[in-house]
Design a protein around this nucleic acid. Structure first.
Length: 747
RNA sequence: GGGCCGUUAGCUCAGUUGGCAGAGCACUUGCAUGACGCGCAAGGGGUCGGGGGUUCAAAUCCCUCACGGCCCACCA
């Protein structure tokens, strides 16, 4: 046995033991074990283009404590790690890092080299394959940084099980799941009004919306009545959409407007006849109580347009500017002249100009009334979302299907939520769905839709007759791969084919993490041993995206939940109790914190936080954790110094002293309590009880037993003490191991 | 507009079938004793956010209000 160190220290433990664990394959998954002896964890793949912050460490440490507990209970823990590297965040990072932008019309240049110095104002265009190469190169570097961090904080993942959401298995899984959805009718393409980000020029999903309070103004102007009666005045924050107006709408019970229902009015400036209609959603107390329906100003317009069966008068281009030619409904010379003043302008500029036109025409009543109101934004965008009509891919999620929605609500009830109140967020999200899940993105770095379209002799794409690849050929990239039965030179030609140009949104892939990690497409044996999984740990802010979408995919494919339990961690707040965010500049880098306090101390802080509870970044807690780890070293040094031949085996000596028996009885109760807590995913409670016992053990028991342990009360007393100390130390180390793995291992 | 979480000592937080208000940090005082001074011992400090109710008994259960944070919503 090695000699006890004179002065035990925490320094260097992370490096030593993470290296040793890797060498010993301590956390390798034993894939020979049957399903009921496996505990499988659907680890969140961190967005690796995002910055590292303490919030990343916080949740993953809590999950690791659960993983270590299950392993110590005898389970084979299936604990993979993924990297979410596909999608828009990576594209942005690559554009800024290398100073390039993707131009899909360019051909691949094998000798392409990004500019030596990135100039954000002058980004060099490059082909899609070149762009993807740069994305892959950068993500590999990002992943190294993350892996190093995770190893340092002691995550007990099996590092042979890593995956990337842009990797081959993830692509194959995404494409296969999509093709199966398509075959079942759970996926479909439709030409429909779509939430559109004009900056990134891509469609976005309902789950990626957020409201932001914006300054706006009510503009009041009137529509002439066809019957010559008094003008009908509306108030709008989007006067520039007047040329897209298709109707006016008021509440069916609104006596002011009821006589007008069914009649038509004429729009100012443009002279277009529009009907006055009734609909429940019109709010009598908003503005003048009668609203202008435009295609499309907001999501309410979409509802009215659909339910009142109105025509489309599109004025917005995908780049956020008003299109060059007016809608066909504007026929008058004056109307077309007015539109020409707006054509080509951004919505913002068009708004300024149309107000001038309305003023010149004497149509604007009074001054615009400034208001602040919530406006929908893409959560990563900086300009308001617009709504354009475009062909997109959707997955049915219950947003327009009562039975499916009920089924998904039922899945939410079947899932065990930790803590339970998080279920509420799922419920309110599913109940509020207002459409199916839009999964196509007009971007470059992502999983392509695995299909092609025949081109007829007239040169038109036959969207309703797509050419599908066989599952065995996945993954495919329809922009470079040629569909069965065609040759490469037929691409884009009449009688030939065209690949679907879109990619899947990153959630369409990450919603399949259970299928990706467990080998659904290529490892049936592993799949049978690990799926459905046991635990989905994640943050509460992505219940509506990741958790719900994963449940949708599993429900469709397997008619069951992808996991039995979900644990939701809380937010990290800075010491002033504000949410940590980059823009506030209060983000602390994990590396600096780990340098200062050590991994076990940081883990102690994270594991002290109750499940699902928002938690302050508290350096004090880390100091407490560090002291605890040192105390554990010192107490162990004492115990081991009384055991010169090493720890005793059960039965080596009789435990006779009442003090020893009482201490061990207390310890047994702590073990039972910690086990119960852990089985309920309450790592924090397990730690709290363990810690409370340990300090009393040190301060009371060790002081009382010391003399006897040194032999001052005879051999029998010493033997009992030594046996009790050996047993207690071993047990205490086991209790602390999920939280303080480095110091526990060191002892 | 609907909903969720929180409000306990100066600070960070426990308090799980209602039963004498707790821990750590900070503060005060003492202690170099053979695991540890990153330690040990002792001490001061709280109208449990406000109000009402149920009960022999409420931090805990019910109602209500306030404040903080978050989620959802059809936001002309």
């Amino acid at each position: 046995m090695a000699a006890l160190p004179d002065k035990p220290t925490l320094d260097g433990l992370e490096q030593r033991w993470s290296t040793q664990w890797e060498a010993d394959q301590t956390y390798a998954f034993d894939r020979t074990r049957p399903r009921d002896e496996v505990f499988s964890i659907d680890t969140p793949p961190p967005t690796i283009s995002g910055s590292l912050h303490m919030g990343s460490v916080f949740g993953y440490v809590q999950t690791d404590a659960l993983a270590r507990f299950q392993r110590m209970r005898g389970k084979a823990v299936f604990y993979p790690m993924g990297w979410d590297d596909n999608g828009l965040p990576t594209e942005r990072r690559v554009e800024n890092h290398f100073g390039v932008r993707c131009d899909p019309s360019l051909a691949h240049d094998p000798d392409f080299v990004p500019p030596a110095k990135a100039d954000p104002k002058r980004k060099v265009p490059c082909s899609r394959p070149n762009f993807v190469e740069l994305c892959l190169a950068l993500t590999v570097e990002d992943e190294k940084v993350f892996e190093a961090l995770w190893r340092r904080v002691g995550l007990s993942v099996d590092w042979s099980l890593t995956y990337a959401t842009i990797g081959p298995r993830a692509q194959r899984t995404s494409q296969q799941a999509f093709l199966r959805d398509l075959a079942r009718g759970d996926a479909y393409a439709a030409e429909a009004p779509t939430l559109w980000d004009v900056t990134d020029q891509t469609a976005v999903a309902q789950a990626e919306l957020e409201d932001r309070e914006q300054a706006g103004a009510y503009h009041r102007y009137g529509f002439e009545r066809s019957d010559g009666g008094a003008k009908v005045f509306i108030e709008t924050t989007r006067p520039e959409l007047l040329p897209a107006c298709v109707a006016l709408v008021a509440h069916p019970d609104d006596d002011r407007y009821r006589p007008l229902f069914g009649s038509t009015v004429v729009s100012p400036l443009f002279g277009v006849d529009v009907p006055v209609l009734a609909h429940e959603l019109a709010a009598p107390d908003k503005g003048s109580g009668i609203a202008m329906i435009c295609t499309f100003g907001d999501t309410t317009d979409v509802i009215w347009w659909r339910e009142l069966q109105l025509p489309i008068r599109n004025v917005l281009e995908r780049n956020g500017r008003l299109r060059a030619s007016p809608p066909a409904a504007i026929t008058s010379e004056a109307g077309r002249a007015a539109y020409a003043e707006l054509a080509g302008k951004t919505t913002k500029a068009a708004r300024v100009r149309i107000v001038e036109l309305l003023v010149e025409a004497g149509e604007l009543v009074g001054e615009p009334k400034p208001i602040t109101h919530p406006v929908k934004f893409y959560e990563r965008g900086d300009r308001p979302l617009e709504i354009v009509t475009s062909r997109q891919w959707y997955i049915r999620n219950g947003g327009r299907d009562h039975d499916l929605r009920q089924a998904m609500l039922q899945r939410g009830k079947e899932l065990h939520w930790h803590p339970p109140f998080m279920h509420q967020r799922y419920e309110s999200w599913v109940e509020g769905l207002n459409g199916d899940w839009l999964i196509s993105r007009q971007r470059f770095f992502g999983v392509p839709f695995p299909l092609w379209y025949p081109i007829d002799d007239a040169g038109s794409l036959r969207y309703d007759d797509p050419i599908l690849p066989g599952e065995a050929s996945l993954p495919v990239d329809p922009s470079s791969d040629v569909p069965p039965g065609f040759t490469a030179d037929q691409r884009g030609r009449p009688g030939g084919f065209a690949g679907d140009p879109d990619i899947m949104d990153t959630w369409a892939t990450s919603s399949l993490t259970p299928q990706i990690t467990t080998g659904w497409v290529d490892d049936p044996d592993l799949f049978a041993r690990t799926f459905p999984m046991d635990l989905r740990p994640q943050g509460p802010e992505i219940i509506r995206t990741w958790l719900f979408a994963t449940a949708v995919r599993s429900h469709a494919e397997f008619d069951q939940l992808p996991w039995s339990d979900a644990s939701l961690n809380g937010w990290i707040l800075d010491p002033d109790r504000k949410k940590m965010s980059k823009s506030k500049g209060n983000v602390v880098t994990p590396a600096a914190v780990l340098d200062e306090h050590g991994s076990d101390a940081v883990r102690y802080w994270a594991a002290s936080a109750r499940p699902g509870t928002d938690t302050a970044l508290d350096v004090n807690q880390m100091k407490v954790g560090r002291r605890l780890a040192i105390k554990l070293l010192n107490a162990s040094r004492f115990v081991l110094s009384r055991l010169p031949d090493g720890p005793l085996a059960a039965g080596d000596a009789a435990i006779t002293a009442p003090l020893d028996r009482a201490m061990l009885a207390q310890l047994a109760a702590v073990v039972a309590d910690a086990t119960t807590a852990f089985e309920g995913f309450d790592y924090a409670r397990a730690l709290e009880h363990t810690e409370r016992f340990f300090w009393r053990f040190c301060d009371d028991y060790l002081e009382l037993v010391k003399a006897r342990a040194y032999g001052e009360a005879g051999d029998a007393g010493a033997d009992s003490a030594h046996m009790a100390l050996s047993l207690a130390l071993d047990t205490v180390l086991g209790l602390f191991a999920p939280f303080l793995p480095f110091v526990s291992e060191e002892v």
